[in-house]
Computed example of a mutant assay.
Amino acid sequence: MIHAYDEAYLGIARTSLGRAFDYAAHCENMDLSQFCRLFLSTGIASKFERGDVRTIAGQSGVELARSVLASTIGDGAVMARYTASRSPEYWAGWALAHYQWSKALPFATVLEGVPITSIVSMYPAYHEMDLEHFVARMDELMGANTPASRLKKYRTSAGLSQSQLAALSGVPVRSIQQYEQGQKRVNRASFETVLRLAQAVGAPDPRALLDV
């Protein structure tokens, strides 16, 4: 499986985002949904998800949070303090960083499918479990909450798995996964690629696979 960036940075990335979430919630008394919107809109999330070393490892979690909040809090200094143990907000950031890394999806896609409030609410049940249980649950929620792409609808109607579609069309299974998850748009694929996918799933016209 292709991950978002080198696994060597994963531990640092999880801790950094966990500390950033904890700081925003407990030092700035900020609603975590609002913080996530700023995280996305400032472009810092995009750098983080690509594994930009300066973003995920070149600063502390507090510094990451303050970079996100710079447009709203300016240069006002707030003393960093943490909860005595891992807070639900810390765990949510920590677990979210892991899920984004494991699936190589944009944070915007993940948080659109599973809002941060839902991730925080998973803390009591999942914080002591192996992370793969959390990943599996997130996959379930993403599948239930993310609108199915047209490609996925045609593929499932044809009774094909992603691997079977890849074998029939000659399109790599990873590309099919990215098209269906919204990480890549079918609309931007070459005509030849869309044609081969359409023929494999029995679509009446290649344009039927294009997402509006």
Score class of each variant (00 low, 15 high):
residue 172 P to H: 14
residue 123 Y to M: 03
residue 89 E to G: 00
residue 73 I to R: 14
residue 47 K to V: 06
residue 22 D to P: 00
residue 101 W to R: 03
residue 35 F to M: 10
residue 91 W to F: 03
residue 146 T to A: 00
residue 155 R to Q: 15
residue 163 S to L: 02
residue 2 I to H: 06
residue 68 V to R: 07
residue 23 Y to T: 08
residue 125 A to G: 07
residue 6 D to E: 15
residue 148 A to C: 04
residue 172 P to C: 13
residue 82 Y to H: 08
residue 32 L to Y: 06
residue 126 Y to I: 09
residue 53 V to P: 09
residue 148 A to T: 09
residue 126 Y to V: 09
residue 174 R to P: 06
residue 183 Q to H: 11
residue 36 C to D: 03
residue 207 R to Q: 10
residue 2 I to A: 06
residue 166 A to S: 15
residue 158 A to M: 10
residue 74 G to M: 12
residue 82 Y to S: 14
residue 29 N to E: 06
residue 210 L to Y: 14
residue 93 G to M: 02
residue 28 E to H: 09
residue 62 V to F: 11
residue 118 S to E: 13
residue 26 H to W: 02
residue 195 L to A: 07
residue 74 G to Y: 12
residue 118 S to K: 07
residue 185 R to L: 10
residue 178 Q to G: 00
residue 204 P to K: 07
residue 84 A to M: 01
residue 23 Y to F: 11
residue 140 E to Y: 01
residue 56 I to Y: 05
residue 136 A to W: 05
residue 19 R to F: 04
residue 196 R to K: 13
residue 140 E to N: 02
residue 101 W to T: 06
residue 195 L to G: 02
residue 152 K to P: 15
residue 190 S to D: 03
residue 57 A to M: 02
residue 158 A to V: 11
residue 29 N to T: 03
residue 22 D to S: 10
residue 31 D to G: 02
residue 186 V to Y: 05
residue 19 R to I: 05
residue 50 R to T: 15
residue 114 V to L: 01
residue 19 R to G: 00
residue 73 I to K: 14
residue 182 G to T: 08
residue 104 A to T: 09
